[in-house]
Design a protein around this nucleic acid. Structure first.
Length: 442
RNA sequence: GGCCCCAUCGUCUAGCGGUUAGGAUCCCAGGUUUUCAUCCUGGUUACAGGGGUUCGAAUCCCCUUGGGGUCACCA
C-alpha cells in the first residue's frame, strides 16, 4: 500500500507550491487505495504557531484534500525522538558534542578562509575524556567519512553525493534536547509507514542526510520523488511579492479549488493533450514517475483559462447563491472567476447607477433616443417586448443595432451585454420600462 | 564559491534515433454575435551554443553558457 505525506512547517499560510506537492502526494496515494497523511513540522519550539496550523488545515479543507489519519504534530512526539536518540547514543552511532556555537563559528570562518567547505571537524566523535564544564552538548550522528551516498530518485534518476563534499557529523538534537529536521523526518516517515516521499527538489540535498539516519536506525529507505519548483514569471523562486501565494487567496479571488488543483497539476505533468481534469480524472490518470524534471513558471493567464473552463462545466444549480440562474446562464461564458460572475450577474440584476460615457456618445444620439422613445411607448401600450422591438425597427427601416445599443445602455449602463432580447425577457416589462425611462429622463 | 538539479514556441507541455517538431495558453487576423464575451477558422513564435557517437540526433555522450536549489543548534 502506498503511504504518502505532506509535511508543512507552520510558519504561515499554505503556500501554492506546497499545495501542489500535497496534491501530488494525495493523488499518488489515493489512486491506489493508499493513505495520504499530514504532519506538522514544528520541532523548533520558537516556530510553533497554532494559528498557522489552523490556517494550513483550513486551506486543505477548502481544496478538499483530507488526511487519512490524525494530523501528526512533531511537537507532541518528543518522547519518541528521545527514544531513538538514546538508542543511537547507546549503540555508538551518535555522540555528544561539546563545541560551543562560538567555537563552531570560528571553525567555519577558518575553513572558509582556507577556501574549504565549512563542516564540523569531528573533534568529539571519539571523545572519551571528561566533558568541559558548563556546556550542554548537542547530539551528532556519526556519518560515513568516505564513499558516496546514492539517492535513487524516481524523477531525477540516480544521484551520487560524495560524502567528502556533502556530509559531516550533523546535529540530530539541539542543546535544549529538541531533535532537528533531518532526524525527525526520517523517524516520522518510518513510523508513519511512509514509503513514497514526494517533495520539492529543494529537499534533494537533504536526502543523503536522511539516508544516513535511515541506515543508522536500520529503517528501510522509501522511494523518493523530487519534484521541480514553481517559479514566478521572472523565473525566480515564488515569493510573496509575486501576488497570490496563499492558497486561501484563491478562494477570495473566486477560483474553484478543482481548477486551482487542475492548474497546479499541469505544471510539470501532462497526459497527452488533455488540459482540463476533474478530480476523478486526476486520480485516474496521475502517475508521479512521469513528472517532468524541470522547473515551471506560474502563469495567471493559464489559471484563469483553466478556471473559466471549469466554470463552464459546472451544473448551473451550483450558482444559485449568485441570484437568478437564468442570468447566470446568460453571463457565465464571459467570466473567468466567481468574482467575474458576481459582477456580471449584478450588472443585469441591478439598475445601472451610471452610464458609460463612451457608450452614450456612440449609441445615444438623436435617432437612438427617438427610437428608444418609440420603443418605450410601444411597450407601455401593452405590446410585448420582442414585438415592440421589431415593430420599431420595421416602421423606421433601421437595423437592430440602432435600437439594441441604446436599450443595452438603459438596461445595464454600457453597450456590452448579453442578447438584449434575453435580458429584457428576464427583467420583465415593468423593469424594462423603469430602466428605459430612467435613461431617457437623465 | 563547493555540491546537486535543470534546459523544446513568451508560458505550460508532447516528443524517449528517422515527425512538415504536435497540443494548450497568450497574442494577432477572419467568421459568428448587427455589441462584448463565448464559440469556430487561420496565423506568428521553439529544440541555448559548440563538439562528438551514428547512415541519421530535439532525442545518446562531453564541454560551454544560462537558470534554479542547497550548504544552520530553520524546516
Amino acid at each position: 500500500m502506498v503511504v504518502t505525506r505532506f509535511a508543512p512547517s507552520p510558519t504561515g499560510y499554505l503556500h501554492i507550491g506546497g499545495l501542489r506537492t500535497a496534491l501530488l502526494n494525495y493523488l499518488h496515494a489515493r489512486k491506489s487505495g493508499g493513505k495520504f497523511l499530514l504532519r506538522v513540522e514544528d520541532t523548533d519550539r520558537s516556530r510553533h504557531n497554532e494559528e498557522a496550523v489552523k490556517a494550513i488545515l483550513d486551506a486543505f479543507e477548502w481544496v478538499g484534500l483530507q488526511s487519512d489519519d490524525e494530523v501528526v504534530r512533531q511537537s507532541e512526539r518528543d518522547d519518541i525522538y528521545r527514544k531513538y536518540i538514546d538508542e543511537l547514543l547507546e549503540s555508538g552511532k551518535a555522540y555528544r558534542c561539546y563545541m560551543t556555537p562560538a567555537e563552531l563559528e570560528e571553525l567555519r570562518e577558518e575553513q572558509k578562509n582556507r577556501g574549504e567547505r565549512p563542516r564540523y571537524d569531528g573533534r568529539y566523535r571519539d571523545f572519551n575524556g571528561t566533558p568541559p564544564e558548563g556546556i550542554t552538548p548537542v547530539i551528532r550522528i556519526k556519518a560515513p567519512t568516505e564513499g558516496s551516498i546514492f539517492v535513487y530518485d524516481k524523477i531525477k534518476g540516480d544521484i551520487e553525493f560524495r560524502v567528502e563534499d556533502t556530509l559531516d557529523d550533523f546535529i540530530i538534537a539541539r542543546a535544549d534536547g529538541t531533535p532537528t529536521y533531518n532526524f525527525v523526518v526520517a523517524v516520522d516517515d518510518h513510523l508513519m509507514g511512509v514509503n513514497e516521499v514526494i517533495r520539492g527538489d529543494d529537499h534533494l540535498s537533504n536526502t543523503p542526510k536522511q539516508i544516513v539516519i535511515y541506515e543508522a536506525l536500520n529503517f528501510p529507505i522509501p522511494n523518493f520523488y523530487h519534484v521541480p519548483m514553481i517559479h514566478n514569471e521572472q523565473g525566480r523562486k515564488l515569493s510573496k511579492r509575486d501576488g497570490a501565494t496563499d492558497v486561501m487567496e484563491y478562494k477570495r479571488l473566486g477560483y474553484f479549488p478543482e481548477a486551482l488543483l487542475n492548474f497546479l497539476l499541469r505544471l510539470g505533468w501532462s497526459h497527452g493533450d488533455k488540459e482540463i481534469f476533474s478530480m476523478a480524472e486526476m486520480l485516474e490518470l496521475f502517475d508521479p514517475s512521469t513528472i517532468s524534471k524541470s522547473a515551471s513558471i506560474y502563469s495567471k493567464e493559464k489559471l484563469d483559462w483553466v478556471n473559466s473552463e471549469h466554470l463552464k462545466l459546472k451544473p448551473l444549480e451550483e450558482f444559485s447563491q449568485f441570484g437568478n440562474l437564468e442570468i447566470v446562464a446568460l453571463v457565465r461564458d464571459r467570466c473567468n472567476t466567481l468574482l467575474d460572475l458576481e459582477r456580471e450577474v449584478n450588472k443585469i440584476s441591478e439598475k445601472p447607477v451610471e452610464y458609460d460615457s463612451k457608450s452614450l456618445k456612440k449609441h445615444f444620439k438623436e435617432t437612438n433616443q427617438k427610437l428608444l422613445t418609440e420603443f418605450l411607448e410601444e411597450i407601455q401600450s401593452g405590446e410585448n417586448l420582442e414585438s415592440s422591438f421589431q415593430k420599431v425597427l420595421d416602421s423606421n427601416g433601421v437595423g437592430m443595432a440602432k435600437l439594441a445599443q441604446p436599450i443595452r445602455i438603459a438596461l445595464v449602463g454600457t453597450a456590452q451585454s448579453p442578447s438584449v432580447i434575453d435580458v429584457m425577457k428576464i427583467l420583465g416589462v415593468d423593469e424594462v420600462i423603469e430602466r428605459v425611462e430612467a435613461l431617457l429622463k437623465r
